[in-house]
Structure formats: structure tokens, C-alpha cells
């Protein structure tokens, strides 16, 4: 069964159409890049998938069910902005995630934090922006979820940290789960993806595997994106 499925999915904000008649599905075991220019509807789609927004028409299913209490337990979400409480220490943050999520793998999270030399007593407030992003990603990836929704996970961090974040994603997802990564930094994530979804002005322009694009078009996904969305 598809981990995420959209059927004629449409979302309007008043008169503005953010997503129009989207049809696609994402299979378990796949890491999918959600790619599109600014304002194309990427974040709207992610918010619909985790139940923060509701469709205007059509439907969106997570593991066969409309977003709700059960699907929320199966979805691990990394929002665009860092949202972990600043006053907490690393240990308090681990307790917090453990209380909230039955699928939280605390030992996995502790191991990764240790690897990054983040002390248990350190407060989030004292961490740099990059470290906060890493810590939040570690929390999100330490859940044994069915669907990971990562909104711009590598946006504000340096290239070495990007590599660390991407290898954390590869090393931690379950082959039964799916990962959706929304980003502009295509050349950085391309190698990590199974397939890509191009969306533009709320419409799905292309769904293809990365190697299929390279094989058939002879260019990288990054180059294809630049061609398709040329200003």
C-alpha cells in the first residue's frame, strides 16, 4: 500500500489556488524529493499530509487513511522553521519526545547526539543555528515512523552539515517507510533520492526516478530543474 497518496487533491486559500488536482502516490522504501520554485505549493502539500491543513477538494491518504489521530502517530514531521523549545536541555528534549511519541528510539537519538558531541546538559538556546537544525532532525529521524516529511532540512546549514544530515536520513529510515524531502538544493540531495516530484504553481509537472532522468535526458535532476523552471 502507498505510504502517501493524493487523488485529485486541491487546496485553495480564498481565491488563491495553492494546489490543483494533484494525483500521485509514494511507495514504501522510497526517498522522494519534492522540488519546485518558491511558492509552488511544497509546504502546503506537506502541511496537508500531516493534517495541519485540510483539502478543499479531492483526498490525501497516509497509509490508506485520511490525516487524523492514527496517521499523526505514523508521520514524523520536520517543519521549515526550527520549532524545538529553546529553554530545554538535550536531556529534557529527549524526555519530551519520548513522552509524546511511542515510536521514539531514544538510544538511536542519544547515539547520534553523542557522535556530534552535543552534551546532555546543553540548552537548545546555547546552540548555533546549524546545531539546532541537526538536533531537531535527529529527533525527527529517531522516530520509527512510516512517513517522514522533511521541509527544507538542509536549508540553512553548511555543506559538511548537509552531508551529515543526508547520511543521517539514509542511515535511519526503515525500508518500509517513505521519506519526503522538500528543497531547492537539488544538487545536494539528488544522489539520496529515489524519485522526484516537480511541482509548479500547484500542479504536478513530473514524477520520475532520478536515474531515469539521467538515463533518458542525459542530465542531472538539477540541470533538468533549471531547464523546466527557467525564468
Amino acid at each position: 500500500m502507498a505510504v502517501l497518496e493524493c487523488k485529485h487533491l486541491t487546496k485553495q486559500y480564498g481565491h488563491v489556488t495553492a494546489l490543483e488536482n494533484l494525483n500521485f502516490s509514494i511507495e514504501p522504501g522510497h526517498i522522494v524529493g519534492l522540488l519546485g520554485p518558491n511558492g509552488s505549493g511544497k509546504t502546503t502539500l506537506i502541511k496537508l499530509a500531516n493534517g495541519l491543513l485540510t483539502p478543499t477538494s479531492g483526498e490525501l491518504l497516509v497509509c490508506g487513511a485520511a490525516p487524523g489521530r492514527e496517521t499523526r502517530a505514523a508521520v514524523s514531521y520536520l517543519p521549515e522553521r526550527t520549532s524545538i523549545p529553546l529553554w530545554m536541555t538535550t536531556t529534557q528534549l529527549l524526555d519530551f519526545y519520548q513522552d509524546f511519541y511511542a515510536d521514539f528510539r531514544r538510544d538511536a537519538a542519544e547515539e547520534m547526539l553523542q557522535h556530534l558531541n552535543i552534551r546532555p546538559k546543553q540548552r537548545v538556546k546555547q546552540m548555533s543555528k546549524g546545531t539546532r537544525e541537526k538536533v531537531q532532525l535527529i529527533m525527527v529521524m529517531s522516530r520509527a515512523a512510516k512517513l517522514y516529511l522533511l521541509d527544507e532540512p538542509i536549508g540553512g546549514v553548511d555543506p559538511a552539515t548537509r552531508d551529515y544530515i543526508l547520511s543521517t536520513i539514509i542511515g535511519n529510515y526503515d525500508p518500509e517507510a517513505a521519506v519526503v524531502i522538500s528543497t531547492h538544493l537539488i544538487s545536494d540531495v539528488e544522489k539520496v533520492l529515489d524519485e522526484v516530484l516537480f511541482i509548479n504553481q500547484g500542479r504536478l509537472v513530473l514524477q520520475s526516478s532520478v536515474d531515469q532522468i539521467r538515463e533518458e535526458q542525459g542530465v542531472s535532476v538539477d540541470e533538468l530543474f533549471r531547464e523546466v523552471f527557467k525564468c
Partner: peptide
């Protein structure tokens, strides 16, 4: 597959292929 994929920074399904 997973260790080598992580080392190379590629998707594990691609390494599998």
C-alpha cells in the same frame, strides 16, 4: 548495502541496483 550507501552518500535502493 546500507553501509556502503551511507559511505557514498547515495540512496540505498540505488546501491542495491
Amino acid at each position: 548495502v546500507r553501509d556502503l550507501a551511507t559511505e557514498a552518500g547515495v540512496n540505498p535502493n540505488t546501491m542495491q541496483r
